[in-house]
């Protein structure tokens, strides 16, 4: 197994994670973005800390997806900056990086969960998780071992060889979560990750998403229309016409971004041992 994707067991906080929880991972300032005559982002300032779950809400066309894409370095803003800080590396402005560097950053540091899962249909579940690791240079046996470990922890033990057509919507989304986390991402971006699921499966998927991201000290940024999903996050940002309309903190703060303690802070996640069968908690 290569160093590049040696990640702590999902659900377990790595050493020093609590201290790092106060570190700002992403800080965007003065974001402006227009599509033709439409102003999608109009001077947005937002920061995301390590171990924090940030929900972005707002009506259709409010700019929430554009904000997510800009924070993730997929869209380049017309003005403003998106500073990203990783452990042991100098801070970089994601918006100013060349395409190749932004791709490398997304591949190595960020994880993505899409509304429809968007797995590669020809590959098995474990190969879907292992493929991005192999693209970053991991050898196949090690990548597959990591993939199996993550799938097992997300309740998919025994389903590693199944393909997309043989998985339910919830199972496919769990594979997508494993794919996003297996590389040890520090920030995970999710756009309506439960949008295509029924309410029971939606709760289950959110449990796993939170546990596998904030539960190990990583940040989670998600766009949702569902207030119940947003309520599970530490902070909810509401956009309207490309501007921040309101912010809601789930815990009282002193004006600073909240410091995220150990994952037991999320009672709704249930007993970690129940959720993460192979978990180390």
């Amino acid at each position: 197994m290569t160093e590049s994707f040696m990640t702590p067991a999902p659900g377990s906080l790595p050493a020093g994670a609590t201290e790092r929880a106060s570190e700002v991972r992403l800080r965007a300032t003065g974001l402006l973005k227009s599509f033709g005559a439409t102003r999608a982002l109009d001077g947005v300032d937002v920061g995301v800390k390590a171990g924090e779950a940030l929900a972005i809400m707002g009506p259709s066309g409010s700019g929430k997806s554009t904000l997510l894409l800009t924070l993730a370095g997929i869209e380049r803003p017309d003005a403003g900056s998106v500073l990203y800080r990783a452990d042991g590396r100098p801070e970089v402005d994601v918006a100013a990086l060349p395409d190749r560097e932004r791709s490398r950053l997304r591949r190595g540091d960020f994880g993505f969960v899409f509304q429809q899962g968007l797995l590669i249909p020809e590959l098995t579940a474990e190969e879907n998780v292992a493929l991005p690791l192999m693209v970053t240079g991991a050898v196949r046996p090690a990548a597959l071992a990591t993939a199996r470990e993550w799938l097992g922890r997300l309740g998919l033990a025994g389903m590693e060889g199944r393909r997309l057509g043989e998985l339910s919507g919830g199972q496919a989304q769990r594979v997508a979560i494993a794919r996003a986390q297996a590389g040890g991402s520090t920030v995970t971006f999710a756009d309506e990750p439960t949008g295509a699921l029924d309410s029971a499966t939606s709760r289950e998927v959110m449990d796993l998403l939170l546990e596998s991201t904030v539960g190990r000290g990583a940040a989670l940024v998600l766009v949702t229309h569902d207030p119940q999903v947003a309520a599970r996050c530490d902070r909810t940002l509401t956009l309207r016409d490309g501007k921040i309309e309101s912010q809601f903190f789930r815990t009282p703060t002193t004006g600073e971004l909240p410091v995220i303690p150990a994952p037991t802070r999320h009672p709704s996640l249930g007993t970690p041992g129940r959720i993460l069968r192979g978990g180390a908690l």
Binding site: I74, S103, L105, R106, R107, F110, F112, L118, P132, V135
Partner: peptide, 16 residues
Amino acid sequence: EELGRALDAMGIPARF
């Protein structure tokens, strides 16, 4: 098309 854009978002380049 949609899967291609998703892979691109994940940093897996189109040339791959």
